[in-house]
Amino acid sequence: MAHMGSEDDPVVSEYDVFITPELEHQLYVLQYINRPPDLPFTKATQSQPSEIRIKPQSGFLEVDVPINIRSNYNKPQGVRWGEALRKTKGFGQKAYGTAAGFERVMPRMSTRPGAAGGEAPAAAAIDDDNIDEYITNFEDANEKGHVLNTQTFGGQIMGDEGSAPSYMVGTFKDDQLHLTKLNGLVQMRTEFHYLDATAQLDAVNRRREKESQEGAKPTEPKAFLPTVKKSGGDTAAELTQSFFKSANQEKWAKLQYSDEDSQLAYDAYSEHLFLADPSAAPKLHSTMNNSQYLDNISAPSKKRRAPRRREDLVEISDSDDEDV
């Protein structure tokens, strides 16, 4: 690829550009919006992700990164948030926020007449309220899962939908630039699942307290009237509701993470992001000339107005002698 320079903008280097074949695997770029670029999530910075999970159909992706709980860490609050997550997960909450379709799992808290046994097992987990003990024995509590010790980042894959631009990742080798098409971008932001879990646990406790005060209501027979519902709609609200429902039902798939300095990462980099035999690569030929190319990348311009005829022109005089 050549570039015409000038004295003010000289050409400093030239590269031959190659496009790699389409990958069999999905290739995404994760952009951490609130993370400084000089502090990547790597083993060298003591922040290697501990878990990565994805919902392929709905496109949600989450990354868990360890938190340093021994420096500038609020232990009482960390235990409370950790307990909220542990308890809500204990009675079936698999995801939070948008990735869960904003759905909450609410356990059955009381025994109905005629039911066997006592309260649901989830109630026992909610009763476990040894916050002070966990703070005192903090290291032991952390090992047993009572402490919030990870920070979660999440986002949704932005794929190529036709109207959006197609992104590529470039790798350099000597005087060659190899371009590989991306399957999508993911803008990762901090997720506050522990706040969702705290609010959910508060709602469970309020319901439990209400039932203890009012007593368990016996199950009464109700009239059943069959109705026919539409299987699906095409309005914006119905499509959104359907999407969140399917996102809630979709299970997480865990991914394997390899640090950027690992041999596996270097092998994948060399194998997938470079053209194997550049000398045998066919040359690309453009179907547009320079003018057509500039027209295609430029913003659309308004149609030019037809020139006015001479008799349509109005002469305006700046003389003071004529009446206005």
Rank of each mutant, 00 (worst) to 15 (best):
G184P: 07
G184Q: 02
G184I: 00
L185M: 12
L185C: 05
V186S: 00
Q187D: 15
Q187K: 08
Q187A: 10
Q187V: 03
M188P: 06
M188Y: 02
M188Q: 06
M188F: 02
R189Y: 02
R189V: 01
R189E: 07
E191L: 13
E191I: 07
E191N: 07
F192W: 08
F192R: 09
H193F: 10
H193N: 14
Y194W: 14
Y194L: 09
L195W: 10
L195K: 15
L195H: 14
D196F: 04
D196M: 04
D196V: 03
D196W: 04
A197K: 11
A197R: 12
A197Q: 13
A197G: 13
T198K: 11
T198P: 07
T198H: 07
A199G: 12
A199V: 07
Q200K: 01
Q200I: 02
Q200E: 08
Q200R: 00
L201Q: 05
L201W: 00
L201G: 04
L201S: 01
D202C: 05
D202A: 11
D202P: 12
A203E: 05
A203I: 04
A203K: 05
V204N: 00
V204F: 00
V204A: 03
N205M: 06
N205L: 09
N205K: 06
N205A: 07
N205F: 01
R206S: 10
R207G: 14
R207L: 11
R207M: 12
R207K: 13
R208A: 13
E209R: 12
E209V: 03
E209N: 12
K210H: 10
K210A: 06
K210Y: 08
E211F: 07
E211Q: 14
E211G: 04
S212Q: 12
S212F: 11
S212Y: 09
S212C: 06
S212D: 09
Q213Y: 11
E214C: 05
E214V: 10
E214F: 07
G215I: 03
G215C: 01
G215N: 04
A216C: 10
A216V: 15
A216H: 08
A216L: 07
K217P: 04
K217H: 06
P218W: 01
P218E: 07
P218F: 01
P218I: 00
T219L: 09
T219Q: 14
E220K: 05
P221T: 05
P221I: 04
P221E: 06
K222W: 09
K222D: 12
K222V: 10
K222I: 04
K222R: 15
A223Y: 01
L225C: 06
L225T: 14
L225Q: 15
L225W: 15
L225K: 15
L225E: 15
P226V: 03
P226L: 08
P226G: 09
P226R: 08
T227L: 15
T227F: 15
T227D: 15
T227R: 14
V228A: 14
K229E: 14
K229S: 14
K229P: 10
K229T: 15
K229G: 14
